[in-house]
């Protein structure tokens, strides 16, 4: 049994389980699925600085912080006890393209030559973690949600603004992958 769990899970299983989070949250406690708001609650809790956008009773929304803390613990459990002993199977085309760009580590879920602890204070780390992370936080809040709030919850509820946001997430990702990444890799080479 554990052998089967240790294998990478197929997309349909993951999709069904992630999709079921929508009714689970709605029915467990009338909560709308969305993760990026947790970042906002952290701002509201730690540094509201009298900014109206962060001046609200974050304790009322604390469920969201419990939820992301759970995701973190789940990440630990998944990696420590249920991880696949085999190296990650990356599509040949993507692997070839990334190698050509200069990525070297293809052994784990993340390339450590970009996301290792030793990269934190390098230009690579600045672009891939600091700058990238800033865009994730700024962009999701500006858009009013992320992949969970817009793409999954919003589309499930047939919201046109969420469809627009999801299309823009994808368009941004394509632009970044095909135009920005080659420039970035030249910059850090």
């Amino acid at each position: 049994m554990l052998e089967i769990i240790r294998q990478p899970w197929p997309w349909y299983l993951a999709g069904i389980l992630i999709g079921l989070t929508v009714p689970a949250l709605l029915l467990l406690g009338n909560k709308t699925f969305g993760v990026s708001s947790s970042l906002r609650h952290i701002c509201a809790a730690c540094l509201p600085a009298k900014i109206p956008f962060f001046s609200y009773n974050w304790k009322k929304e604390i469920w969201n912080l419990f939820f992301v803390a759970g995701i973190l613990i789940g990440g630990y459990i998944g990696a420590q006890f249920l991880s696949n002993p085999e190296p990650i199977n990356i599509a040949a085309e993507t692997k070839a393209q990334l190698s050509a760009l200069g990525v070297k580590d293809f052994s784990g879920l993340m390339p450590l030559d970009l996301f290792g602890v030793d990269q934190i204070f390098t230009l690579k780390g600045f672009i891939f973690m600091v700058l990238g992370g800033f865009m994730v936080g700024f962009g999701t809040r500006y858009a009013g949600g992320c992949t969970s709030g817009h793409a999954i919850m919003g589309l499930s509820n047939l919201q046109i603004p969420s469809l627009i946001a999801t299309i823009c997430f994808m368009v941004g990702g394509f632009i970044s992958t095909w135009i920005f990444l080659p420039i970035i890799f030249k910059l850090i080479a």
Binding site: G132, G139, A143, G144, C168, G172, G173, F174
Partner: peptide, 10 residues
Amino acid sequence: GGLIFGFGWS
């Protein structure tokens, strides 16, 4: 915001 998140996502 969607485009900016997309940049960061990739």
